[in-house]
Nucleic acid binder design. Structure first.
Length: 513
RNA sequence: GCGGAAGUAGCUCAUUUGGUAGAGCGACAGCCUUCCAAGCUGUAGGUAGCGGGUUCGAGACCCGUCUUCCGCUCCA
């Protein structure tokens, strides 16, 4: 089976067993938007909790917040998102090059301006010292005409861009006969507003309402709360602020199932450090995060670092943790040394002093930031796709099983009466009522026992507790392990403790800072 | 955005050149069953992705559109 087939199987398994459904499927779905089903929501929640514990609960100097998705519009000016992610773009179909439509028009204007300049220079030479450039420009018919052209183009361009009338922008480009500098052709696509950020209006009146963006990353919610948290928590550098939550990006091409979605969930931690210490912490978190991934038991060969050579405007070091998805190694998590870029920018735009006062040196300074940022949906896909297995058993039959790390499994225990008589269902219900207080449990009495085991395998339940005839005599049950299919006989009274102990096995423990 | 492939029941797929839409599995109800999906009986579930065209008649042919997957591109 090749990877493409495997990926298709994984996607249909996700749907068939209630992990992930296409959004609004009864209306044909919505491109690159997905809903988590009854089992998916549990797995996703467990991943989030596993991360949260590793970050917040296990580190005394890391706290969490939950910032709103809506933020003050100036946030995105300070962060650089407004400038970086909002342009009218047009592609040349022949050269496949993409241009900003306004830049193409400005270049065209510049060419006309060149013509005027040359005209003026020529005249200046001719008339010598008596030459009055201003008078010349106002009276020379060719210059006047070109100047009119420029004014016309510029005013129309500004009008169309303000109105976001991109059809008119394209028409203008075609009317002016602008060609692609690379291919020299006029074979243009439509002008499209490339705006990575989703926008909406705050205030129900259309007039006077402010444009509000849905956050394209959760990190800014942490930066704008830096002062609040520092002042209310008594934390000293180095310390971290963690957050999980939805972010939104209007990707041009959103693909590969839940790998690249327009609405997605991030798990981010911004670690504030003393300037100069950032590389030490960058390396600490690099090692720590890979350790976290490996604690989940997926083969280390599926992970690798990818150091950035070209750095973003805010970073002085950056690496990705890449995971081998069915469609190849792709970014799963980013670890970035963001310097003081964000706090300095917010300081400038807000006028607030976003600094830490170091009582050891009696100095105030803007902390540097080391960020770990992981896509929750991507982590879900990483876990789900590597857990999906079709095993060939000794008798040649095939078992479809999700080898999800037990700590992350949607259901921890299934309680199954061997047969639906002799009081076994009642006994099983009794056990279930106890266990469900601590673990997510499923009860199933329908069909043959073997089939019920396979049903649990398919959703990744690590333990099946079976009530049989012996149970009725001595209050013991069998507990079946999903991965080995082996069974142990244990006392009902010990079940809770045994399961709890097994779930804790190999769990992540942080390295001392 | 460009190119390729696909879309019939929850799933996998039939429906010979156009002639009133079917099976297996699954689900549900019941029977039978002492341990790894294969026993028996019954029930439910589809205006064939959607829209239009050709035709006496379209799941099938044509056009459009939507969605998904793959490659390129883009993004990070």
């Amino acid at each position: 089976m090749n990877n493409e087939e495997l990926f298709k199987k994984i996607i249909s398994h996700a749907k068939e067993y209630g992990f992930i459904f296409p959004s609004s499927e009864i209306y044909d779905g919505l491109s690159a938007v997905y809903d988590y089903g009854q089992n998916g929501v549990e797995l996703k929640k467990n991943i989030r909790e596993y991360w949260w514990k590793a970050m917040v609960q296990y580190h005394e100097n890391i706290v969490g917040i939950d910032a709103a998705i809506f933020m003050h519009p100036t946030t995105w000016k300070a962060s650089g998102h407004v400038d970086a992610f909002s342009d009218p773009l047009i592609d040349n179909k022949d050269s496949k090059k993409r241009y900003r439509a306004d830049v193409l028009l400005e270049d065209h204007i510049a060419k006309i301006e060149d013509k005027i300049t040359k005209e003026v220079e020529k005249a200046a030479k001719r008339f010598g010292e008596t030459f009055d450039a201003k008078m010349f420009c106002e009276t020379n018919p060719r210059v006047v005409e070109n100047q009119h052209k420029i004014d016309d183009i510029r005013s129309r361009m500004n009008e169309y861009l303000t109105k976001e009338d991109f059809v008119a922008v394209k028409a203008l480009i075609e009317e002016l006969g602008i060609v692609c500098p690379v291919s020299g052709s006029r074979n243009w696509t439509d002008v499209r507003q490339f705006n990575l950020m989703f926008s909406t209006q705050m205030g129900s009146m259309a007039e006077g309402a402010d444009t509000i963006y849905l956050r394209p990353e959760t990190a800014q919610g942490i930066f704008v709360n830096f002062l609040n948290v520092m002042k209310s928590s008594r934390l000293k550098l180095p310390f971290g602020i963690a957050q999980t939550g939805k972010a939104f990006r209007n990707e041009i091409v959103a693909r590969q199932f839940i790998f690249r979605m327009r609405e997605f969930e991030q798990m981010e931690m911004q670690f504030f450090v003393k300037p100069g210490d950032e590389m030490t912490w960058f390396n600490y978190w690099k090692a720590e995060r890979i350790k976290w991934h490996e604690s989940l038991g997926t083969s280390p060969a599926k992970y690798r670092f990818h150091d950035h050579e070209k750095l973003a405007h805010y970073a002085n070091a950056a690496t990705d943790i890449e995971f081998e998805f069915p469609f190849g190694f792709k970014e799963l998590e980013g670890i970035h040394s963001r310097t003081d870029f964000d706090l300095t920018a917010h300081s400038k735009f807000s006028g607030k002093k976003l600094q830490f006062f170091d009582t050891e040196t009696n100095e105030s300074y803007v902390p540097y930031v080391v960020e770990t940022s992981i896509g929750l949906d991507r982590m879900f896909l990483a876990i789900f796709s590597s857990a999906f297995n079709e095993e060939t058993l000794e008798d040649g039959s095939i078992r479809t099983v999700l080898n999800i790390p037990p700590v992350l499994s949607p259901y921890k225990v299934a309680i199954l009466p061997l047969v639906k008589k002799d009081g076994m269902p009642e006994k099983a219900r009794e056990i279930m009522d106890e266990l469900k207080l601590d673990f997510t449990c499923q009860y199933d009495e329908k069909d043959a026992i073997g089939r019920r085991y396979r049903r649990q395998d398919a959703i990744g339940t690590p333990y099946c507790v079976t009530v049989d005839h012996q149970t009725l005599e001595d209050n013991t049950v069998t507990i079946r392990d999903r991965d080995t299919m082996e069974q142990d006989r244990v006392a009902i009274a010990d079940l809770n403790q045994i399961i709890a102990k097994r779930l804790k096995l190999n769990q992540y423990k942080p390295t001392k800072m």
